[in-house]
Simulated scan of single mutants.
Amino acid sequence: MAEHGETQADEEEQVWSWGAGTDGQLGTAKLQDEHLPQLLSLTSLASISMLACGGAHVIALTSVGKVLTWGRGSSGQLGHGDILNTSLPKPVFFFNDYVITQASAGWSHSGFVSDSGCLFTCGNGSFGQLGHGDNMSLTTPAKVSYFFNTSVKMVACGMRHSLVLFAGNQVCGFGSGKRGQLGFSLDRSKSVNLPCVVSGLEDVEVVRISANGDHSAAISADGELFSWGRGFCSGPDVQTPQCLPSSLSFREVALGWNHALLLTVDGEVFKLGNTLNKQPEKNQLQIDSSEALLEKVPDFEEVKVVQIAAGAEHSAAVVESGEVKTWGWGEHGQLGLGNTDDQTNPQLVSLGSIDLRTEGIKVYCGSGFTYAVRRKQELSSSPTSS
């Protein structure tokens, strides 16, 4: 502990993982599921700026510009030039001469955005989800030529499709479009291997995109949510972006395979579903004639949520105090509660003894696994007591 009047050193960063681990995606060097959070060695994971978790692989970006990947590599999604799995974080040497600022992990492909606005993809390309004009898979990242003359801001990778937010706040899609997830006016386009502009967002200032499963979503600068692709809870597929009619203002969306989590600017969490053969219950908000609705996630009434994440069929949230809560499917231990039970309501995950008053936590979900990162923080000089 720092003495009064002294400046406390940077707090150590901590990374935990839990859930499905048989492909090495937990980074523990063990090929097994973990039902409780495992504290990882930080030899290669110091100063993480972001994580992206996919079907069974993970991408980590560090604050000094390094890119590391691990987990399942059977389609080349790790970018190491091979199709091997790796159970420990491994640098992607292809990016040694680049600074990667944002990345996304799909089911078996990966996307990377550089500080100069270039897009790189690798992994499974059998549905055209790499955007190179063919259906080839790549074991080493390659620059997507469509964006040579424009600046890419963000990439989002789903199960078999990709979305890109680029200059002018426009959104492109490529890959499988069987469920409408590409957002084209083409009726049920099976697949597209070159980026095509998503219909209906030309006059929208999009600031965030998201993709998972066969779902796609975007959030505007005004806090509006647009979604398209596979219908939620057996609802009809949506071929082009539809704005969610709501007076709420959203700042974050997290997509699973069958659900979507929405975080409002006020720190409230809602789940997007469909009311087929179901009457709205208390704390549910009817939003349109198609009977889609927002259902407020229970147990967050008295707290403010600061971040959300969604896996295939589980969810996670970080509340203002720094606590992590999880719920949903638990078969692989991805809820971090020490068992494989499913949970309908958010449950507190124990991450050991940390000072929740000063430490920042972020949570990330893969298809059946979860990560939590406590970022390193510089603390100001302690005031001398009187």
Rank of each mutant, 00 (worst) to 15 (best):
Q343P: 00
F120N: 04
V253A: 05
C118H: 11
S189G: 08
G231H: 13
A309K: 05
L262I: 05
I100S: 10
E13I: 03
G71M: 04
Q77F: 05
M136W: 02
A2V: 10
R208Q: 12
L335C: 07
T22D: 11
L119W: 08
V303K: 13
S210E: 11
L337D: 02
V253P: 01
Q347L: 02
S249F: 12
F369V: 03
A9I: 06
P141M: 12
A217Q: 10
Q347V: 01
V64F: 13
S108V: 08
Q242P: 01
P195T: 00
D82N: 14
H109K: 11
C157A: 04
K362V: 04
C118A: 14
P37W: 09
F184N: 00
Y146M: 05
A142S: 07
V373R: 02
K30S: 14
S385K: 10
K325G: 04
V305I: 14
V319Q: 13
L165Q: 05
A103H: 06
Q347K: 09
N193F: 03
I83D: 13
G54M: 02
G235M: 08
G336Q: 09
L351P: 02
I354Y: 15
L285W: 03
Q14C: 07
S386E: 09
Y371M: 15
S382E: 06
A254C: 09
E302M: 15
G65D: 08
V349Q: 11
L31P: 01
V64Q: 12
L68H: 12
E302C: 15
D222V: 10
V99A: 08
L272S: 11
T28C: 11
Q347F: 02
G229K: 04
V253T: 09
S17R: 01
L39I: 01
D203I: 13
Q129P: 03
T28N: 11
S220A: 09
I100L: 13
L379C: 01
L379A: 04
N212A: 10
E320P: 02
A316R: 03
S216K: 13
G71H: 01
T28V: 11
L36E: 06
V192G: 00
L36H: 01
S350P: 00
S380N: 00
V92E: 04
G231K: 10
I354S: 15
S199Y: 11
L39D: 01
V64R: 10
Q279Y: 10
K282P: 06
V192F: 01
D115H: 08
S367A: 14
G333H: 05
E252W: 12
D299Q: 14
G79D: 06
E301T: 13
T121D: 03
L294S: 14
